[in-house]
Amino acid sequence: MKLILEQMPVVISALNIGFIQTLKLFFVTLLGAFPLGLIIAFGSMSRFKPLSCVTKLIVWVVRGTPLMIQLLIIYYFPGLILNNPIWGGGETGRFLAASTAFIFNYACYFSEIYRGGIQSVPIGQEEAGLVLGMKKSQIFFKIKLLQMIKRIVPPMSNEIITLVKDTSLSRIIALQEIIWAGQSFLKGSHGISGAIWPLFFTAVYYLIFNGILTLLLGRLEKKLDYFR
């Protein structure tokens, strides 16, 4: 116990650095996957059959295979198979590869949520707007959008919470996020070696961050509770 207390300051500062990389991956994924998911959703709902079929196939493949494998393929495939290491070396390259894999994977999940939200608004809402002389854009922004958001927020919250934990998968390509930072004290780092507790301690970071997110997302959900 005394030893842990002595190691604490060094470990915390290393974990903080790792956690910043975790957060970066988290926010970059959201920033990319929110719009890309919408584009994929429109693709899969397209009346142009070839487009909707291809989009649905891609979504099916991405949702049906482990994110970890997608990470490995996206990171290693260009360099090892195509002899064209597009990601470059080092931490930047790993981050780019991880972001790409995460954005693509999460966009596919988000697209299904968007699709559900868009299709959950009854056709009668649009027709009522039309009959009242509203433009399509007015119907979308003034009538449908908020109803969609209300349907989307709860499933989206679940995905967002899952994403926080999923970022740890990027450890597989040695991205220096918090798991990597915690693990480094096993092999030896900052003069500490053979310590397993830092790795366990990373859980606290996830827990606190997810606690904050749950609170914020719950508040948003409550805000939209005023109508049905």
């Binding site: 009668g124 809402q125 027709e127 002389g133 433009k135």
Partner: peptide, 20 residues
Amino acid sequence: IRKKRLHFGLVFQSFNLFPQ
């Protein structure tokens, strides 16, 4: 057509009020 619709009003069986 959008303007022409305004000659008519329509009350639906299922109301279709805007819930928000």
